[in-house]
Design a protein around this nucleic acid. Structure first.
Lengths: 152, 152
DNA sequence: GCTGATTAGATCGCATACGATCTAATCAGC
DNA sequence: GCTGATTAGATCGTATGCGATCTAATCAGC
């Protein structure tokens, strides 16, 4: 390993820590807004998908939010207990779980979008700057994820 | 709210989800590398700070990794049980907890840096591109964090 | 149409995050 | 030098993430 590079390898210059700490900071920003809706941040992320699709299989939902059944099953059961979604087995394929947003769930859409916009404004970025940042971060994520798959 | 903007408010364009999902993807990339060291990703982040400082108060450590005592206390106790760090009360101020890395802890530094470099390479970014991305993400994080403080 | 492989979810255990709250030590200001 | 405020950590409860593993349903290929 190059010694000069090694000397520079500090937390405050690492992209991984920037993403890690930014994600936590964003979550803290959302908390008071989402508290009013009775949602946690991961629950909010799931609801974002449902506001778009109304009905979706758990598998497709898992792909979009990039979480697995071991995380999603308990989370979705909580959303069901809050009567924001319904969970039902698919008739054609009993393995599949269909998730559907309820009226109460859809009623939160506007407030949820307001929260997302509030964060966007709080970043201090322009719309273009934020989208550029977002796309580059997604590209880095996809590149890294490819390495994870290959290893598996 | 502008209707056109609202229609575009989907998970796949949100900076917050990009950071959230990228952070998870990075953590998944690290897992096999950190497994060999017997570390989790948050433990690795703490060790990164200790490789730089050797000795630091818990408060200063908490500031750097942006976590609080309720998260750090159990994590540090685990690192202590692994004999990678020591925890001791400060003589001058008994409230303060001094954290010091052990020889065994320092011995991991090179492998840890290798892991961080491996991720950096996996992102597919150039060194400059990555630093630019990192700095813009930190700036967004700082802007957002300022809003959280103001509200508190 | 049988059987091994695959797939979709669920369950369990461990390790974070973090709000709320507690304790002990130190500080501030009179 | 006393006392209320502040500070540094610790503890507890809830909600993720995720590896490992399990079950049930479907598919593949003969």
């Amino acid at each position: 390993m190059n010694d000069d590079i090694a000397k520079q390898l500090r937390l405050d210059v690492l992209l991984c820590f920037a993403a890690y700490s930014a994600s936590h900071a964003f979550s803290r920003f959302y908390r008071p807004l989402l508290d009013e809706l009775g949602l946690t941040y991961p629950q909010f992320i799931v609801m974002m998908v449902l506001w778009e699709h109304q009905r979706i299989t758990m598998k497709a939902l898992a792909d979009q939010v990039m979480l697995e059944s071991n995380t999603l099953t308990p989370l979705l059961k909580k959303l069901e207990a809050l009567e924001l979604i319904t969970r039902s087995r698919n008739r054609d394929d009993e393995r599949v779980l269909d998730i559907e947003v309820t009226k109460a769930g859809m009623a939160m859409k506007l407030d949820g979008q307001r929260a997302a916009l509030a964060l966007a404004e709080a970043t201090g970025e322009t719309l273009e700057g934020m989208l550029d940042l977002q796309q580059r971060l997604v590209k880095a994520r996809e590149n890294v994820a490819r390495h994870v798959e290959k290893a598996a």
